[in-house]
Amino acid sequence: SEIVVAMYDFQATEAHDLRLERGQEYIILEKNDLHWWRARDKYGSEGYIPSNYVTGKK
């Protein structure tokens, strides 16, 4: 599975969105859409994140 790191904070506005915290790692579950990826955080929460807010883990 692909691990990404959040470059920016993202506040979830929709129920299906996942909040991003800058510097935290997330697991990508689905990339069915170019701009919104389904991800899981370290607490096990899942939701959609803006793909341009994250970068591949170095």
Rank of each mutant, 00 (worst) to 15 (best):
D17T: 15
K42F: 06
K57R: 10
D17K: 15
G56Q: 14
V5K: 05
F10W: 15
D41W: 02
G56Y: 14
N52C: 15
D9H: 07
N32W: 09
Y26W: 01
K42E: 07
R22W: 08
E46F: 04
V4P: 00
Y26E: 00
Y26M: 00
I27R: 06
R19W: 07
W36I: 08
E46K: 04
T13L: 13
Q24W: 06
H16T: 14
Y43N: 11
A15C: 13
L18E: 00
G44E: 04
Q24F: 08
V54T: 05
F10E: 00
A6C: 06
Q24A: 10
A39C: 03
G47V: 02
P50R: 05
I3S: 06
I28Y: 03
D41Q: 02
L20W: 03
R19N: 15
V4C: 10
D41M: 01
A39N: 01
L34N: 13
R38T: 09
A6L: 03
E14D: 13
I49P: 01
T55H: 09
G44F: 03
L20Y: 01
G44D: 04
I49V: 09
Y53S: 08
G44P: 00
Y53M: 12
D41L: 01
E25P: 07
G23C: 11
I3Y: 09
Y48S: 06
W37M: 04
H16L: 09
I27G: 02
K42H: 06
E25C: 11
E14T: 14
V54W: 03
Y53W: 06
S1M: 15
D33T: 11
I28Q: 00
V5S: 03
E46G: 02
S45Q: 14
R38L: 15
K42A: 09
E21R: 07
K57L: 14
R40T: 05
S45C: 14
E2K: 08
T55E: 13
A6V: 03
S51D: 02
D41R: 01
V4N: 01
E25T: 10
D17R: 15
K58R: 11
Y53Q: 06
D9M: 04
N32P: 14
K58V: 15
I49Y: 00
R40D: 02
Q24N: 08
L29D: 00
S45Y: 13
A15D: 12
A12G: 15
W36K: 09
K42W: 05
N52K: 12
L34W: 09
G44I: 04
I27D: 03
F10P: 00
I28A: 01
Q24M: 10
R38I: 09
G44A: 04
S51V: 10
T13Y: 10
S1L: 15
K57H: 10
K58W: 14
R22K: 14
W37Y: 05
A15R: 10
Y43V: 05
P50N: 07
P50W: 06
Y8F: 11
K31D: 05
L29Y: 01
Q24I: 05
H16N: 13
Y26V: 03
E25G: 04
L29R: 02
T13A: 11
D9Y: 05
W36V: 08
G23Q: 04
M7D: 06
R38M: 11
V5W: 10
A12L: 04
I27K: 06
P50C: 10
P50T: 03
Y48V: 06
E46M: 05
Y26N: 01
E2F: 13
V4A: 06
L34P: 15
G44K: 04
E21P: 01
V4F: 08
W37P: 00
E21S: 06
E2G: 08
F10N: 02
Y26S: 00
I49D: 02
R22V: 12
I27L: 13
A12I: 07
V5C: 09
A12D: 06
H35P: 05
S1F: 15
V5D: 00
I27E: 11
E30Q: 09
V54A: 02
G44N: 06
I3P: 03
L18T: 01
W37A: 01
I27C: 09
K57N: 11
E2R: 09
Y48A: 04
G23E: 06
L29A: 01
I3M: 08
G23F: 07
K58M: 14
R38V: 11
L29M: 07
E25Q: 09
Q11K: 11
Y48M: 14
K42Y: 07
A12Q: 08
N52G: 11
G23K: 04
A12F: 04
Q24D: 08
V54M: 04
D33L: 08
R19I: 09
Y8S: 07
R40F: 03
S45E: 13
N32F: 11
I28E: 01
R40Y: 02
G56N: 13
K57Y: 12
Y8L: 10
D9F: 05
L34G: 12
E14H: 14
K31T: 05
L34Q: 13
E21M: 08
G44V: 01
S51G: 06
L20T: 02
R19L: 07
N52I: 09
G47A: 02
